[in-house]
């Protein structure tokens, strides 16, 4: 008999070592998330996966599954909370979906649709973030960074290059690259690195790709993010 916890009145089976989110996703229950990725250790930074457990908020990507937990996931309160978190991510950067080549493949945009973000609600900060196009094959558009650190983790743990890091604190926190010049061209990154393909938004871009994938064939054209198997998500 497997162990279970309860999520929105549904019994979710789990094995020791799984987080609440991992167990829920494995059982076909969607929990919105941005910084979590099945190939990387839980991070717990974006908080979009926040659930309510025994009356308290917790990040489901870092919360170990335990028998007897009573978890709230798809409630009006949590949807509102998650929506506000996504709205804050939108206003902190410069996210212009209409001209972004990641549109249709972007997890932040997909979550915006999922959580019914109809306005930005908060005042946009419009930060000044020049792009880094110094690399011949890649471009960094910092305007869209949500500080998920997936590229940081992928470059360190999978690619073994340590190209990316976050610098600064609070509202000044930002993505940097590991070179004396601060330019991507002077790092050891390669276009085939996992750090490049793991970016959930439109920061790390392969040059020249642009809009080669037509509307209708992009990741989230077929179904909303909540209806897609985790393995197919970018």
């Amino acid at each position: 008999m497997s162990k279970t916890f309860t999520m929105d009145e549904r019994e979710i089976p789990f094995v020791e070592g799984q987080t609440v989110m991992q167990a829920a996703l494995a059982d076909g229950v969607y929990v919105p998330h941005l910084c979590a990725h099945p190939e990387f250790k839980p991070h717990g930074s974006c908080r979009v996966c926040t659930v309510k457990v025994n009356g308290r908020h917790a990040a489901s990507c870092t919360l170990a599954a335990r028998e007897g937990l009573v978890v709230e996931n798809q409630t009006a309160e949590l949807r509102e909370l998650r929506r506000e978190l996504v709205q804050l991510l939108f206003v902190e950067g410069n996210h212009f979906c209409p001209s972004c080549e990641k549109s249709g493949d972007c997890k932040l945009q997909a979550l915006g649709y999922e959580l019914e973000v109809k306005t930005l609600h908060f005042t946009q900060l419009f930060p000044d973030r020049p792009v880094d196009a110094s690399h011949p094959d890649l471009m960094l558009d910092f305007n869209r960074c949500i500080l998920c650190e997936l590229c940081v983790r992928a470059s360190a743990e999978v690619d073994g290059r340590h190209v990316f890091a976050l610098s600064g604190r609070g509202i000044d926190k930002h993505l940097i690259v590991n070179s004396e010049s601060g330019r991507l061209a002077d790092t050891s990154i390669a276009a085939t690195d996992t750090a490049v393909s793991v970016c959930p938004v439109g920061v790390i871009l392969k040059k020249g790709r642009g809009f080669r994938v037509p509307i209708g064939q992009r990741t989230y054209d077929a179904a909303p993010i909540s209806a897609m198997p985790e393995g197919k998500k970018p």
Binding site: F96, P98, S99, C100, E101, P130, V131, A133, M139, L205, K207, G208, R209, G210, F211
Partner: peptide
């Protein structure tokens, strides 16, 4: 100005 060229046809049509 300062945007990648492949973005232009989609951006300027706005």
């Amino acid at each position: 100005q300062g945007r990648p060229y492949w973005e232009v046809p989609v951006m300027v049509q706005r």
